[in-house]
Structure formats: structure tokens, C-alpha cells
Amino acid sequence: MIDDNSKYELIETLARKCPNRMGRTALMKFMYFLQTLRNVPLGYRFSLHSYGPFDSDVLSDLGEAELLGYVNSEVKDYPGGYGYEIKDTEPPSKSEFLDEHEDDIGWVIDEFGSDKSADLELSSTIVFADREERPCSQSTEDLASLVHQVKPHFSKARIIQRIERLEEKGILGQRKGNKSN
């Protein structure tokens, strides 16, 4: 299992490599994707909230990473709301763990680094529902219905569009009822 320093270094590296500002939602979902889809042994235990998979230990680790100077974090206002911006610090982290998982980190940034918070919440909720409900047992329509119950503010069409995008990337399992079947 990953040690604490490696987690702080990972947070710093994600902040450095993320093309957009990395907020708390992005950090939470990157960690979820790394652990769930790339089997990076982060030791978190994600459970579902209305904003998608969440583990408060990620925020706890972020707090310690800030305390130890790996990253800085500040609140940014935007119309109708606010978010956090997590910034890396110099020098860039280097470690055996980061070397070992360089491809995984590159993958999560390539696949999700440019997504907005709402899209990250939707994608991670889809992955969570897909993994938990065993992909082979439900159709795309079933999965979309399930996700729609968690996130009813997204239209079913938009959820299906996102499911298909994740399927194309090979992130979700093959289901009965898919177009390709």
C-alpha cells in the first residue's frame, strides 16, 4: 500500500500535470479513477454521494500535503459559485512510486484532465455504478437509468452519450443491449 509521502507527491504531480486548474472535485475523481480503473493501490474507500464517489480521506491527505508544503490551495470565485485551485510547488516531486505509476498518472490526465467538475462527477458516477452493478448484467439503458436516479439534473440522453464515450475508451465493461452486440 502507498505511504503518506507518496500520496502527497501524487497530489502535487496531478496538480502540476492537470491542464486546467485542479480543484477538489478533480482531485477526488482522479484518485477514484486511478484506484478503480488503473489499480493504483491508494487505499481509499470510495462510496457514493450525490456528487459521485467520495472518500473524506482524500481531503485529509490534501490538508496534510498543504501543511507539508507539497501544494497550495486557494478559493476561486466564479459566477454563481466557487471552487478551489490546488497548485503545485517547486521543486517537482520525484519518487519511485511516481516513476512506477507514470503511465497511470499520464493516462488519468489525458482522459479526464480537461473535463469540467460536472463531467467528472458524471463520469465517476457511471464508473461507480458500472463496477458495482457488474457490467455484464445490465444494458446501457439500465445503467443510464440508474445513473439518472443519482443525477436527475442530467438528461438521459446526455448520460447515454457519456456512457458511450467511456465505452469507446474501453473504460466500461461490455454489456448486453449495447449497439455493438
Binding site: 457514493l48 454521494h49 450525490s50 467520495f54 461507480f128 440508474l146 436516479q149
Partner: peptide
């Protein structure tokens, strides 16, 4: 309590 999708309809209240 577990945070599973079976509770999808009431998941807002998990907080």
C-alpha cells in the same frame, strides 16, 4: 449507509 447505487433515489440525504 454504505453509499451504494441501490440507494440512488435517496442518495442526496446521505450527507
Amino acid at each position: 449507509l454504505e453509499g451504494k447505487t441501490e440507494a440512488a433515489q435517496t442518495i442526496f440525504w446521505r450527507d
